[in-house]
């Protein structure tokens, strides 16, 4: 076989380059990172799982839906049909002037105010809006605060004890300046269960 015609020559190199790089970057690199992460960082690499008596009840990073009065409630969610679907992350994508979003916000505000026995003006923005992922594990400290009395009453605990648990599961800004403070809802609810 003679040499390839000139216009075809780069394709010979390109095919081989793609194969070599696929092995190196597409198989070697991710598997090497997986190996190192599984050895050095097994907790994080496997999803920061949260256990209750050894049973996995979720991930500290992924929000769950909690509905009853004895639980702290998460934000509204647009992930999947019923929200908090781990296989269907996503946002509502409704615009800032969307009449549909405005109606949803007003409906949620009335419901949150009623279930927690607070005036509508006390309901913070994160309680009436869906997150970008639909899996937000946090609520704002303000949204946790208005839920304290309801949860304390439903569980027969003192509001002060519940408030202390909320404070324990509140994280401030990273390095003091990054992002915003939040309360991890799953970890807080787990602590409530274990406080019984």
């Amino acid at each position: 076989m003679g040499p390839l015609p000139q216009w075809l020559r780069p394709y010979g190199a390109a095919v081989r380059f793609l194969i070599v790089m696929t092995v190196l970057l597409g198989v070697g690199y991710p598997l090497a990172v997986t190996g190192v992460a599984q050895v050095l960082l097994p907790h994080q690499a496997n999803g920061s799982l949260v256990r209750d008596d050894g049973r996995v009840v979720g991930s500290a990073l992924i929000g769950q839906d909690f509905a009853g009065p004895e639980w702290f409630h998460p934000r509204p969610s647009a992930a999947g049909e019923d929200g908090y679907d781990g296989a269907a992350s996503g946002a509502s994508n409704l615009g800032p002037n969307s009449p549909e979003l405005r109606a949803l916000v007003e409906e949620r505000r009335a419901a949150v105010a009623a279930e927690n026995g607070v005036p509508e003006s006390a309901v913070p923005p994160d309680a009436v809006t869906a997150s970008g992922s639909g899996l937000d594990p946090h609520v704002s400290p303000a949204y946790a605060a208005i839920q304290v009395d309801r949860v304390a009453q439903a569980r027969g605990l003192s509001p002060a004890a519940v408030r202390a648990l909320v404070a324990e599961h509140t994280t401030g800004r990273a390095l003091g300046v990054l992002g915003e403070p939040g309360v991890n809802v799953l970890e807080l609810n787990l602590a409530l269960e274990q406080a019984r």
């Binding site: 409704l94 615009g95 800032p96 969307s98 979003l101 916000v105 994160d126 997150s131 937000d136 939040g182």
Partner: peptide, 20 residues
């Protein structure tokens, strides 16, 4: 700003609490 964002009190639709 925006009618829906103002009804919520802030433009938090589609944003995560940890970022703001």
């Amino acid at each position: 700003r925006g009618t829906a964002a103002q009804a919520a009190g802030a433009a938090m639709e589609g944003k995560e609490v940890r970022f703001g």
